[in-house]
Nucleic acid binder design. Sequence first.
DNA 1: TGTAATATGTCAAATGTTTTAACAAATTCC
DNA 2: GGAATTTGTTAAAACATTTGACATATTACA
Lengths: 408, 408
Amino acid sequence: MRKIDPNNFTMATRGTSREVNRQIALTLIRTHQPVSRADLARLMETSRANVTLLISELINEGLVREGAQGNQKLRGRKPTFLYLNSQNSVAVAVDVRASKTFLMVTDSIGRQIGDIVSFPTKFDPQEFIKSLSDQIRKALNQYADSSNCIGVGIVIPGVLDRKSGVVLHAPTLRWRDVNLLEPLQREFDGIEVYLENSGKACALSQIWSVRGDGTALSDIVFVSVSDGVGVGIVINGEIVRGAHNTAGEFGHVPLSIDGPQCSCGANGCWEAYISNLATLSRYFGRNVADRKPQALDIAEFTIDDLIARARSNDSKAITALHSTARYLGLGLASIINAMDPSRVYIGGEITEAWDLVESLVRDAIKERTLTSELGETPIRIVPAVEYPRLRGAVALVTAPAFAAPKVA
Amino acid sequence: MRKIDPNNFTMATRGTSREVNRQIALTLIRTHQPVSRADLARLMETSRANVTLLISELINEGLVREGAQGNQKLRGRKPTFLYLNSQNSVAVAVDVRASKTFLMVTDSIGRQIGDIVSFPTKFDPQEFIKSLSDQIRKALNQYADSSNCIGVGIVIPGVLDRKSGVVLHAPTLRWRDVNLLEPLQREFDGIEVYLENSGKACALSQIWSVRGDGTALSDIVFVSVSDGVGVGIVINGEIVRGAHNTAGEFGHVPLSIDGPQCSCGANGCWEAYISNLATLSRYFGRNVADRKPQALDIAEFTIDDLIARARSNDSKAITALHSTARYLGLGLASIINAMDPSRVYIGGEITEAWDLVESLVRDAIKERTLTSELGETPIRIVPAVEYPRLRGAVALVTAPAFAAPKVA
DNA sequence: TGTAATATGTCAAATGTTTTAACAAATTCC
DNA sequence: GGAATTTGTTAAAACATTTGACATATTACA
């Protein structure tokens, strides 16, 4: 039961029904391809005639193409299979991190083209925009005509204002009020540029993925543990943004209000217990707050090193990881109690050590979840090789074509 | 950008556009009444012709009625004002609490008819159902023909399974797996019975209210502080339910994982710091866990008494309230960081002492919110005399007529 | 091999919308 | 009393789904 917002509604026009059904058909082709018109008619519980009309429009627009004929054992006319058409146009995905910036070109339905390239992230906004523009141009020249690029999706580790395209605050990049969208949009005239926060992008990457693990769910939480803790929440197939686009900051929900100081200034945030920095500090037996800010990006000893040591039976490393695991679980329990998601995705370096920590995480979750069902909430690891941020950047560009139209 | 769920979508039919626009028109009449067809055409940015058609359908169905002609100073034909039609049918709202059960009859658009009645809550499910049925019948006989009752909305302080209508766990009532819906539905054949958790119902009461404070918002959180802490979250005009209908349990997010034991078994839950019981325990200088369970419902000294003492300058009472205020604010900061709502509503006895605690609550919120904007998130008190739970029960019955149709 | 059975896909008419344009109705201004 | 203005209605056009018939293509089987 959804309330209609009397200040912000969308009337249905003569074409709304068609628009809705078109998007449903597209979505079904995307998740069920290869699929015939008759299959779609059954899935959509409508007539084949209607499907023919919808599909002919999609084919005319170049979004769908007919492929080979199906081979089924039954008798009757063979179906012509339908496929999404990658349409000879491409998308660019960019993942900006403090250490490096990653870039990937995909076709219009999000399949990777060529290699993922990376280059150092310039901290000066002007220089950053220059170098990013150069890299995008280079990639487009290599893998496509820049003329048919449908968009550039950029993922930023920070809070941003989506309307103005301004990065309000990106701690690891030391950016405040940096206007990225405008200069990039000017640089790439006619190509849509999308910006998104990295936690939210990771969540997007999961709901828009069409991979092995069955169909992507619509109510999920993505927790990304790295220098900080990023969280993206999806409810009803839509990212939760909140009134100021800052929703999802579970990283600063406290485990103990008198706990260690967090980079945000408050004490005892979840992030202060489970970030890579927190784990490392625990290993070195020092207080997180002791680390000087400059040391953040020139980490000589990384969490990956710590995990390696844990694997070679360094008991201090194991202890540090185990503590992190327990705190991770305790915080996840809060998220699960609060949002009751169908699944929780976890990304970040800690996933490389999942076999070492999983049972502790699960125990801690059960310790604080309110019902046994909540304690069993499925958790899925997203390893770094799946590039969730980059996949999220892809979704920014390619997903709108499949999204539900706004109605009522 | 909402993803279409390929396993659970709704096709648009020939009549979908009409259905959507009908509901928009209804919503606008509800929030702007009295309003003319021409006004609606302007609000909806469509032609008067279209409005005429939509409205004539609504009038035929008895949902809308024409009223007096408008008196405007400008020249031109006078508009005929449209009103929601209360339609000679009624709704019953029930608020079940451990101490008492409250009951109210309203017209079909949620306006109170007669008085609010209350009666002792029977703890035995069988007896409860019997006594509730009697009271509903009595009220209906007094205020309406039972023949034209459109529904009964019942609010329960506990976790429930909406599909089966079973109360899974209501601690204060000491209920487990009590099937309420089935016997009541049998008792009131043909009348729809709705069940809802009290935290979620309170949130519903606010988004569906049409009162002085401008139009109701669509992204809000309702925090109800009483024996326990109930939270209802609304995102995009829709209650957040989660995979098991248990979303919203921010009451059990910890302030300190080593804090006082909570009724849920875990330590340091927000609820263990701010529930009425916690405040009282603080006043009496004892540990919350010391209180025996039996004492829960036979509280000889209530939070209202404590507030009264604080008002007559009992310094211990003031201190206890001030502590609660601070913890309340610290927990609210977590909710605000996580959900970034447009507004937070607070209900419960503590609202009676709001002038004593407001500034401390606000300070604590600012202490832990991530941005200054979040620190300024508006907070509105909902005093007991507004009966938020009962209003939520009303919305369960009367709101579906105004809700957006499910599309895509 | 030919015919029946069956499944896919298309076409055209029927039906229910919004949209457009014209018009009737009612009121004020001058 | 007529022009101007606003409200509300009507009828035709445009555009969608829906329905039923039909062409197309393939297999099963006598």
